[in-house]
């Protein structure tokens, strides 16, 4: 890695990555603050706008993760089999995410331990 140019190109890459990461984070802030108003201005349904916002945040996060791992952690410059060895196990994580997100809605269905029993008088009236 001791580059012939005294590390100038490596430093350039670092600065570029840093700028990208800062830019993405700043963009996330902007979204967090203005998304609601923009959505309202266009006339999008609130639930849908929220879903899109979250999706966008997750995509941006994955971008940031990629830049950190690839450039700061240098994985892009390691030989291929090392990077594959490290990245492949995360297929299991993807599987777990898909699994639990899909099943999460059914988990503990009908048993809501955290709902206090006192919340609503209306509930009582069903018995009456």
């Amino acid at each position: 890695m001791a580059a012939a140019d005294g590390g100038a190109s490596a430093r350039k890459e670092i600065i570029q990555t840093a700028l990208i990461l800062s830019g993405l984070t700043a963009f996330e802030f902007l979204i967090a603050f203005i998304w609601k108003d923009v959505g309202a201005a266009i006339g999008v349904e609130e639930e849908f706008a929220k879903l899109m916002k979250n999706l966008l945040f997750i995509i941006l996060t994955l971008f940031k993760a990629f830049y950190i791992v690839a450039y700061f952690m240098h994985l892009k410059h390691e030989i291929r089999r090392l990077s594959v060895t490290i990245v492949l196990p995360f297929l299991f994580i993807i599987w777990l995410i898909i699994g639990l997100m899909l099943e999460g809605g059914y988990w503990g269905a009908g048993v809501d331990a955290e709902q206090t029993t006192l919340n609503k008088v209306e509930m009582v009236e069903d018995n009456a």
Binding site: A2, G7, I14, A18, L21, S22, Y71, F72
Partner: peptide
């Protein structure tokens, strides 16, 4: 993020 940048600069200087 900034501390990550200074860290990677340290690594580069180490090279």
């Amino acid at each position: 993020i900034l501390s990550s940048v200074t860290m990677v600069l340290a690594v580069e200087a180490g090279h």
